[in-house]
Design a protein around this nucleic acid. Structure first.
Length: 525
RNA sequence: GCUCCGGUAGUAUAGCCCGGUCAAGUAUUCCGGCCUUUCGAGCCGGAGACGCGGGUUCAAAUCCCGCCCGGAGCACCA
């Protein structure tokens, strides 16, 4: 051991290469983290997962866990991924037509295309059918107690007066519910459970209730139905009916599973495998639908894609790639503890994806004028669009010694701090200069030399620049919605809306608009 | 309050079920260095964690008990 360690590294490496070449190869394979296996996959012919949003808001990073986990597992086992809109509350959580589409779009953008799609508001007759069966079999009943009266009974582990009435009576009441003879809140269908269950919330839970859809019409089916299923009823039935084998959802649904299991046993069904992951938050962002809706409606945010929001629309606008989100979610995995992500984690994945792909440009933030005197000749700066990929092409600027021997540039006021009178500075990819004078809005300098080696030897700071005249105005909207003003180099005029580029020494941005001037959104450093 | 989860570095994660190979791995972050006409990326090195207290055991991040902290649910919402 000591003998081996005393050898130079290159020698050690040579020996290993000779004797165990496979050891080195293995070392280089950077393994991507994989999802842990799903439980009891063998029990089912095909794995079926579902993502079931309420279309009452746009999707955000908080939903990413459900979407990506469900989709990824479905792919992993060559199974099926279902999108199911749970829009059964026309009153309190009103679905909004535009969100059905925005959710579909977000899923496509994320690369999580559903194999099938269902909308619960189209399935009301199915829910009625099972409600009747359950009532007929004495496993459900129509309760006409006031909520308070019922609550008292159930807390005392006693049946309410309705519970033990014969099924025929309840079938009559059910018919009256459908016929509109009860008003909102006057009757509710309950699933029978164990009255002694330790958690009062699971005892005889409500399955269907009445909504006055004349007053609160459903955006898709209007006033067609007065009796609407509650979450546990619709969701519980659908999961079985659609053949869902693995339910992957947040742990807030843990008690819902307990409730639904009673219904499954009434129907003689077997409950699917269920994974309840923890809550996902990201520092500084509101991931609550109500906060988002409130903020957008109230004008606090510019829209669903306001850069301060962690909606997919906002992330997309900023140039955060779906691949980065996917890696992040897979990295976090399906465990039950809550996580508070830091943006750095997301950015790091995104940077890894973007860096080898996107072109580089100069953007000068809060520009000030730099005058360079004493140019010996005209210079041509020919700069690669991507440092490692010369085949991408170049951008070219001719630095003319127009007025005598001087040239004018924009440089960033932020770089003022690295400029000291008498010291050398390198204009990246161009030449070295010596600072003669520094004022708040103007810097004077003189030409020093051309070679990069000189700059290195002098330990000169490197700053980027845009030739005055070869510039175009550019605004960058930052993640806090503040706007940074500056100038971009002229070559940016060839960019298109939607392009993601790196503004060197500034960060990655996505081009939003280009009309003589540039509007970009900042992704990250 | 009741019911149920969970707590590994700044962040995220592996390991926990089936104690030893964990003087705890990985990614990111931060700090150095190298490389490179930029930042970045890349390469090399460094910093940084088992919530607390008991117990069982030759041996505990892993098993048991207590405590503390965090979260979720307790709707005729999803």
């Amino acid at each position: 051991m000591g003998e081996v360690n005393s050898l130079p590294l290159s020698e050690q490496k040579r020996i290993v290469e000779e004797k165990w070449p496979e050891a080195l190869v293995k070392e280089k394979v950077e393994e991507e983290k994989k999802l842990p296996p799903l439980p009891n996959v063998d029990k089912y012919k095909t794995v079926v997962t579902r993502f079931s949003p309420n279309p009452d808001c746009v999707l955000h990073l908080g939903s990413a866990r459900a979407i990506i986990l469900c989709h990824e597992y479905a792919r992993m086992y060559r199974g099926k991924f279902i999108l199911r809109f749970e829009d059964t509350d026309p009153k309190l959580k009103r679905p909004v037509p535009e969100f059905y589409d925005s959710i579909r779009e977000d899923l496509m953008w994320l690369g999580c295309k559903p194999d099938e799609e269902y909308i619960q508001s189209d399935r009301i007759p199915i829910y009625y059918e099972y409600a009747e069966k359950l009532i007929n079999d004495g496993n459900a009943y129509v309760c006409i107690c006031t909520p308070q009266a019922f609550r008292e009974k159930i807390l005392a582990q006693k049946p309410c007066p309705c519970r033990d009435l014969p099924p025929e009576t309840h079938m009559e009441r059910w018919q009256r519910m459908l016929d509109g003879e009860y008003n909102e809140g006057e009757a509710v269908v309950r699933i029978k459970t164990d009255l002694n269950h330790p958690n009062p919330a699971v005892r005889d839970w409500p399955a269907l209730r009445i909504i006055d859809t004349e007053e609160y019409p459903h955006p898709r089916v209007g006033s067609k139905y007065r009796v609407w299923p509650l979450y546990n009823f619709a969701c519980g039935l659908d999961d079985h009916l659609m053949g869902v084998t693995h339910i992957i959802r947040g742990k807030e649904h843990l008690t819902n599973m307990v409730r639904q299991k009673y219904m499954y046993s009434h129907l003689g069904w077997e409950y699917p495998e269920a994974i309840h992951y923890g809550r996902l938050k990201i520092v500084g962002a509101y991931l609550s639908k109500s906060k988002i809706v409130q903020g957008v409606k109230g004008g606090l945010y510019t829209g669903w894609d306001d850069p301060r929001l962690a909606t997919f629309a906002a992330l997309r606008k900023r140039g955060i790639t779906p691949a980065a989100i996917k890696r992040l979610i897979i990295d976090v995995g399906p465990k039950t503890s809550d996580v508070v992500l830091s943006w750095e984690n997301l950015y790091a994945y995104n940077r890894k994806i973007l860096d080898p792909e996107v072109n580089r440009y100069f953007f000068v933030q809060t520009p000030i004028q730099l005058t360079v005197h004493g140019l010996p000749r005209t210079f041509i700066a020919k700069i690669r669009l991507h440092p490692e990929r010369p085949e991408r092409g170049f951008k070219e600027y001719v630095i003319k010694t127009s007025e005598g021997d001087t040239a004018l540039f924009w440089i960033s006021r932020n770089d003022l701090k690295s400029l000291t009178v008498g010291k050398a500075v390198r204009l990246m990819e161009l030449f070295n200069i010596k600072i003669e004078s520094v004022e708040a809005y103007a810097v004077e300098a003189s030409f020093l030399s051309e070679s990069y080696e000189d700059a290195k030897r002098m330990d000169a700071p490197l700053i980027h620049w845009v030739p005055i005249g070869d510039d175009m105005p550019c605004q960058v909207v930052m993640p806090d919605a503040a706007t940074v003003e500056g100038v971009a180099e002229k070559a940016c005029k060839n960019l298109k809306s939607g392009d993601i580029v790196q503004f060197e020494r500034f960060g990655f941005v996505r081009i939003e608009r280009l009309d003589g001037k540039i509007l970009a959104y900042f992704a990250h450093k």
